[in-house]
Design a protein around this nucleic acid. Structure first.
Lengths: 230, 230
DNA sequence: TTAAAAATATGATATATGTCATATAAATGT
DNA sequence: ACATTTATATGACATATATCATATTTTTAA
């Protein structure tokens, strides 16, 4: 069992407020998991009695709509926590978490987190700030979905993926989403998403090579998206 | 200056966790305001440095989209707090708050709230839970905007207004939104909103009398709001 | 390797929704 | 009470996007 004290990822999460003692305590009660690409970490409606700390990899948080389609609400990557909202609300999780790449995550039981809440105000504050950040992001997404066209949303999402998760040596986006996933992130039909990607490609804004996407004209994409990076 | 200890509204907000001493302290530092219908409490981008407790009335939280249209992100009514997110994030507010009716609100400076956070864990927890609730609501709205039709969203919003804010003696919805506001809540053009209301009216689902809206067939509206696969 | 399944791509078409124009009704201010 | 502005309503039309069909490519598994 690896020690939380030495975990690089800890520095980037709310857990950075924990003291050495608390980290030792944490090491003792956490459980580490390896999750393969495509595997489910938890599913909408489940009772997850704790939180996951993402050590490596990326996952999508999805919500099933009444019409049967999944919508990707958020992507979560290393250094972030999963399941905080429902743990705090004392409810089943309202989203499913599915690995987009192989992942390493640690599970921390609720009792433990709650005891940190009690003892360590800075930690509470960090968690609160994270959730507040999520809320702001959700508000922004809402307005985008309500007011922007699919084309604008696609451009914006490509830029978001670029800015947030970076690119490979060949300049292609690091997070590799299927067309279907991309569509369910921007809230459109898969075919529409494919078509618009094709258009962007023909316009020279992006370059498509199989699943790989390279952003060629970032400024034009920004203009297209009315994108303002926070 | 009225005493927070005797404020009925307190019981319904996160503030219910405060002790008698804390409430006395709160009474001393709060400022009460009367806000007339249509007046702005705060505007997107402003630095609010505290939170508002809504004692009476309803307001809308709106966000301006790049295309110049407002989107109504949420309605806030008595017993709820305003501006918590940005206070905690230490950022300017990301939403504007505008009164939909005459309101009474109390402003509580940030320093005060922070001291309660430090001293009173139950209070922190309450605030956290509220924000988590907001986040869940935002996620739900996002998926609805992404996946449901305007008609479904209109039906759902009417039901939401009905369930959340109740109705007058004549059975009309208590919150009275203009067609424009209703449209910017469901994320559509004003004309589309008006047209669909007309349709609902002709179908006997609702009854329109001037600005007043009466829900006549709640069950049919519910069926309509939940997508049913054909 | 090969067959089967899934993902991507693109065309044809349907439809929901937005936009523009204009009429009427209601609200507002002088 | 009047004129002026603003909100509501409705028609005609444009267009973005969804849906359905089908081909092609890629991935998966046997």
């Amino acid at each position: 069992m690896s020690k939380c004290e030495q975990c690089i990822v800890r520095e980037f999460s709310s857990l950075k407020a924990l003291t050495k003692d608390e980290l030792l305590q944490l090491s003792d009660c956490k459980t580490s998991y390896t999750i393969k690409k495509g595997e489910v970490i938890f599913e909408e409606g489940e009772n997850v009695n704790g939180i996951y700390c993402v050590k490596d990899g990326i996952c999508k948080l999805t919500k099933l709509s009444p019409n049967g389609k999944d919508h990707i609400v958020k992507l979560v990557t290393k250094g972030e926590l999963l399941g905080q909202r429902s743990m705090i609300s004392d409810e089943p999780v309202n989203l499913s978490a599915v690995a987009l790449e192989d992942m390493e995550v640690c599970f921390i039981p609720k009792s433990e987190v709650m005891s940190f809440f009690d003892k360590n105000n800075q930690f509470s504050m960090n968690v609160m700030k994270t959730i507040c950040g999520d809320l702001k992001e959700a508000d922004d997404n809402m307005v985008n979905l309500a007011q922007k066209t699919v084309k604008e949303r696609l451009a914006e999402t490509l830029l978001y993926l670029h800015d947030t998760f970076g690119k490979n040596e060949d300049n292609s986006l690091k997070v590799q989403l299927s067309r279907d996933e991309l569509a369910s992130m921007i809230g459109t039909a898969t075919e529409s998403c494919i078509r618009l990607l094709s258009d962007f490609n023909k316009l020279g804004l992006i370059e498509l090579t199989g699943k790989k996407i390279v952003l060629k004209e970032i400024n034009k994409l920004k203009k297209m998206a009315d994108y303002d990076p926070k």
